[in-house]
Design a binder for these strands. Structure first.
Length: 470
DNA sequence: ATGTCC
């Protein structure tokens, strides 16, 4: 793959063949390493009908289903632009929520083991069913799919202020529960309020370093303050919705005269029955993911209150797997675009009207989950943010799960983390080994590349004190 | 990511 270095941290893949736009990759050659397969996916995405600007890739790009993870693609709705479930991924609305405690590391030290034991009991995780919320009446799942975090708060699992600090106020509009299949509902009903497995986690962290005091203060972050980060998605419900709608689009594509270089890029126009059906179901899954994080926040709050007498306040909740209809400037005109972000985080600039008033002046909080034993980051959106105001989403996997499990012994990793002062509460040792830090890129390098590429700025680094994993 | 293959 020929990459032309336009400027440091920004590479271009020139248009050729069926590409409608060029590819743009924000990274260094070091970070890209052996990314040949995922760069081929960047090229494939550039062929989608209606795509505008470029097929973008973030510094944490790696191979995914159809689209690369770390990919951003926007299509023009009025110009026949398509929506593709592969551009969102199987874990619809996977995202991150950060809460801050009214205590610092010193004050929490003696209570930390009790907090971790409490979280160990209170946080459902791992594959399969189990969640903190159980429906007790008719139509509750439907109301949750329409209301997201708002529904959870209305049911008593949070406070109104939480909603002001959620992307979209806690719920995506236009969820269409009639497009959520029976099987998706069956899988979803028993998993509300659960982490799931793989790289999903709940961590107790501390603010290790503040890089931007103004933004950190606006977000409510101070050095050594204790935080809780929750990284999870829409579990089996989102997975089933993706499966169902990929199949429907794969069948329907030919009727719209659409051909794609990879069947995993199945898509139809946004403005088509299949496109609207997917977006309606996707919005429902997005709300499920948000409600999921809201219910888990409530569970964590109860543990912190009981075990440490500490209160948790929401900083922000943002997804990194979603397609959204947004208005952006394209070639000097305002256009309605379907922006696919898959393993990429929305990063609205300072002053954006959709941001909560109390953080608007400094830009959107962007939450980047790192890997166990390393660090996570809080970033902020910047003016003129490229790629439709998007940035990275995490470290980015470099070893397969299989290779990680083969190379790393879970118990040894657990002991290593404990020696480094990180309390670990895994559900399985195998699961822990698959998520070993060495299986990922260096999250600090990914964040630095994103900042230098002009996509965001770094606000604070968080390091783990305790890890709860599936 | 995922009742890690209907």
């Amino acid at each position: 793959m020929e990459l032309v270095e336009e400027r440091p941290w920004r590479f271009r893949i020139e248009r050729r063949g069926a590409m409608r736009v060029p590819g743009v990759v924000f990274a260094s050659r070091d970070l890209l390493g052996d990314a040949e397969q995922s760069l081929e996916q960047v090229v494939n995405v550039a062929t989608l009908p209606g795509i505008v600007g470029a097929s973008y890739a973030m510094p944490d790009i790696h191979w995914g289903y159809g689209f690369p993870i770390g990919g951003v693609a926007a299509t023009d709705v009025e110009e026949g632009g398509v929506v593709s479930p592969g551009g969102v991924g199987f874990d619809i609305s996977c995202g991150v929520r950060l809460l801050v405690a009214d205590t610092d590391r010193r004050a929490l030290r003696s209570a930390l083991p009790a907090v971790m034991d409490g979280l160990d009991r209170a946080i459902p995780r791992g594959a399969g069913p189990g969640g903190v919320w159980r429906p007790t009446g008719q139509g509750q799942l439907e109301r949750l799919l329409e209301g997201g975090s708002r529904y959870a708060v209305a049911e008593g699992y949070g406070e109104d202020r939480d909603l002001a600090r959620c992307e979209d106020g806690g719920a995506v509009a236009d969820a269409d529960v009639t497009q959520v299949g029976e099987r998706a509902r069956e899988r979803g009903i028993g998993q509300v309020g659960s982490l799931g497995s793989a790289n999903h986690f709940l961590e107790v962290q501390r603010v290790a370093e503040v890089y931007d005091e103004t933004a950190a203060a606006a977000f409510g972050l101070a050095p050594d303050q204790v935080c809780v980060m929750i990284h999870c998605g829409s579990r089996g419900l989102g997975h089933q919705i993706c499966t169902d709608h990929v199949r429907a689009m794969d069948r329907a594509m030919a009727r719209y005269g659409i051909t794609v270089p990879d069947r995993q890029l199945a898509c139809t126009p946004v403005d088509s029955p299949e496109g609207r059906a997917y977006l309606g179901a996707m919005a429902a899954a997005a709300n499920y993911g948000r409600a999921n994080r809201q219910f888990l926040s409530d569970a964590a709050r109860r543990v912190f209150q009981r075990a440490a007498g500490a209160r948790l306040t929401l900083v922000y909740d943002v997804s990194h797997n979603l397609a959204k209809i947004e208005t952006h400037a394209v070639g000097g005109a305002r256009r309605r675009l379907c922006v696919h972000r898959k393993g990429a985080t929305r990063a609205f600039p300072p002053g954006h009207p959709d941001l909560p008033e109390d953080v608007r002046a400094v830009g959107q909080p962007v939450l980047i989950p790192g890997t166990m034993g390393t660090a996570s980051y809080v970033l902020a959106g910047v003016p003129g943010g490229d790629a439709f105001f998007s940035t990275c989403h995490g470290a980015g996997r470099v070893w397969s799960r299989h290779r990680a499990a083969r190379t790393v012994v879970g118990r040894e990793l657990g002991a290593r983390l404990e020696r480094d002062g990180i309390a670990v509460r895994p559900r399985s040792w195998r699961g822990l080994s698959e998520e070993a830090p060495e299986a990922y890129k260096d999250v600090s390098a990914v964040v630095a590349a994103s900042e230098r590429a002009g996509l965001c700025r770094t606000v604070a680094r968080l390091v783990p004190l305790g890890v709860v994993k599936g």
